[in-house]
Amino acid sequence: MNLAEDKRQAIINAALKEFSINHYATASTNKIVSHANISKGILFHYFGSKKNLYLFLYEYTTNTFSEALNRQLDLTEPDIFKRYEQIMKVKIDLMKQYHALFDFLKKTYAETSFEVRDELNHYNATIQKSSYAMVFEGIDTGLFHEN
């Protein structure tokens, strides 16, 4: 985005707030631009549509969490339960640090709007596939009972 960082953050924060409170269909771009202190024309100039803004925000949020998780996760740990414990601790720390992002993500999981649901499902499937591959790589299966 060719936007000054302060305006970019203002838009992200305003959109997070609005989409965390309301479902996609009922969220107001008027409220977003008001809270971000920008014109509606600027919002649509950079994002094109409410849908593009929502999907940008979803990708931004999931990337923020994925990058943090990747930085903090010890993939040399061969015990799946210890690795899972690490993941949960990192998630708790991220929830504390990025509360607004988690509120938005929680709302997206319950989103039913046909306008964005397919894109969210597709994006989630892609993330899950790569995440599972990373999390399970190098696991010591000898720690499990046979069968």
Rank of each mutant, 00 (worst) to 15 (best):
K91M: 12
L120Q: 00
F47M: 02
D74W: 09
A110R: 12
T76A: 10
K51D: 05
Q86E: 09
I12T: 03
K7A: 08
I38S: 04
Y54G: 01
F65L: 08
F65Y: 09
F47K: 02
T126L: 14
K7C: 10
E115Q: 11
S28H: 00
K17F: 14
Y58T: 00
L143W: 01
I21Y: 12
I32G: 02
Q72V: 09
F19N: 02
Y46V: 07
Y84R: 10
G48P: 00
A15H: 07
F44C: 09
G138E: 05
Q128E: 14
G48T: 02
T61I: 03
E77K: 08
G48S: 00
N147P: 07
T64L: 11
H45D: 07
S34Q: 13
H122E: 14
A100E: 13
E85I: 04
A14N: 03
H145E: 13
K129T: 12
I42W: 12
K89F: 08
H145A: 11
S34N: 12
K129I: 09
L69G: 08
Q72E: 14
V116L: 03
E59I: 13
Y98D: 03
Y98A: 03
I92L: 15
L73R: 03
T62D: 03
I12F: 04
E67Q: 13
E119I: 04
T29P: 03
I38Q: 05
M134K: 15
Q86R: 05
D6V: 12
Y98W: 06
Y84E: 12
R83K: 05
N2V: 11
K40A: 12
A100V: 06
D93Q: 11
T61E: 01
N52Q: 10
K17A: 09
Y24L: 00
T126A: 13
I127T: 04
E59M: 10
S20T: 01
D103Y: 07
V116C: 03
E5C: 06
Y123P: 04
D93P: 05
L101V: 10
S113F: 05
Y132C: 10
A25G: 13
S131T: 15
L101Y: 15
V90H: 11
R8E: 04
G41Y: 13
L101A: 11
Y46H: 14
F136K: 08
R117W: 06
F47S: 03
Y54E: 03
P78M: 05
A125L: 09
A27I: 00
Q9I: 12
L16Q: 01
L16A: 02
F47Q: 01
L3T: 06
N22E: 07
F104G: 02
S131V: 11
D93K: 14
F47V: 02
D118P: 08
S39H: 04
Q72L: 12
R83M: 01
T76K: 11
L69I: 14
T126M: 14
Y54C: 02
Y84M: 09
I92H: 15
H35C: 08
Y60P: 01
V33R: 00
A4Y: 15
T62L: 02
S49F: 07
I38V: 10
Y46M: 07
K82S: 12
R83N: 02
H99S: 15
E67F: 14
I139G: 01
E115A: 10
G142W: 00
H45N: 11
K51N: 02
S49A: 11
M134F: 11
L57K: 00
K50Q: 02
E115P: 06
Y84I: 07
F56H: 04
T61A: 08
F56V: 03
Y109R: 13
T76S: 13
E115F: 08
Y60L: 06
T112A: 11
T126S: 13
A100G: 09
